[in-house]
Simulated scan of single mutants.
Amino acid sequence: MPAPVRSGLAVSPALTIPRAELSERFSRSSGPGGQGVNTTDSRVELSWDVERSAVLGSSQRRRLTERLGDRLVAGVLTVTASEHREQRRNRDAAARRLAALVADGLAAPPRPRRPTRRTRGSQERRLAAKKQRSATKRLRSSGRGSDD
Rank of each mutant, 00 (worst) to 15 (best):
V5E: 09
W48I: 05
V102E: 09
R63I: 00
S82G: 03
V76Y: 01
S47C: 05
R28V: 04
A103F: 14
R61A: 05
A107G: 08
A99V: 14
P13R: 02
L98G: 14
R89Y: 05
S42T: 00
A74Y: 08
K137Q: 10
T78Y: 02
G33K: 00
S27A: 12
T119V: 07
E86M: 04
R113D: 04
A94M: 08
L72C: 00
K137H: 10
A107K: 07
S122E: 14
P109H: 11
D49V: 04
T65I: 14
S146K: 13
R62Y: 06
G143M: 09
A10K: 09
L9H: 07
R113M: 05
K130T: 14
L15F: 07
A14W: 13
P109F: 11
S12K: 09
Q123C: 10
A99T: 13
R62D: 09
D92M: 05
R85S: 00
R138I: 04
D92T: 04
K130Y: 14
R91V: 01
R125G: 05
G34I: 03
K130I: 15
E83F: 02
P110V: 03
Q123I: 15
R120P: 09
A100Q: 10
M1Q: 13
V79A: 04
R138Y: 02
G145I: 06
R19S: 15
S30P: 06
S7W: 11
V5D: 08
S134W: 15
T40N: 04
R6A: 13
A129D: 14
R144Q: 06
S59A: 13
A81F: 03
T65A: 13
N90C: 01
S146C: 08
R125V: 02
R118P: 10
A108N: 09
V79D: 03
V5S: 11
L15V: 08
S82D: 10
E24F: 11
N38M: 08
G75Y: 02
P13V: 01
G75F: 05
E24Y: 09
S82F: 00
Q87S: 00
G145W: 10
L9P: 01
V44I: 03
N38A: 04
R67H: 14
Q60W: 01
R89A: 15
E24G: 14
R133L: 14
A94F: 06
A135T: 05
L22T: 10
S12N: 08
A81C: 05
T40H: 00
T39I: 04
T78N: 02
V73C: 05
V79H: 02
A100F: 07
S12F: 07
K131R: 15
R88E: 10
T16E: 12
T80I: 01
S82C: 01
R120H: 08
T119R: 02
G8N: 11
Q132I: 07
D70E: 09
S23P: 05
A107S: 13
L68Y: 08
R62P: 02
R140Y: 11
D70K: 12
S42W: 00
A54P: 08
R6W: 12
G57R: 10
W48K: 03
A20M: 05
L64V: 02
L139S: 07
S23I: 05
V50Y: 01
E124R: 12
A93C: 07
G105N: 13
P18F: 01
L56T: 13
A93K: 11
V79P: 02
E83N: 06
K137M: 09
A103H: 09
R126P: 07
V55C: 01
L98F: 12
E51N: 05
A128Y: 08
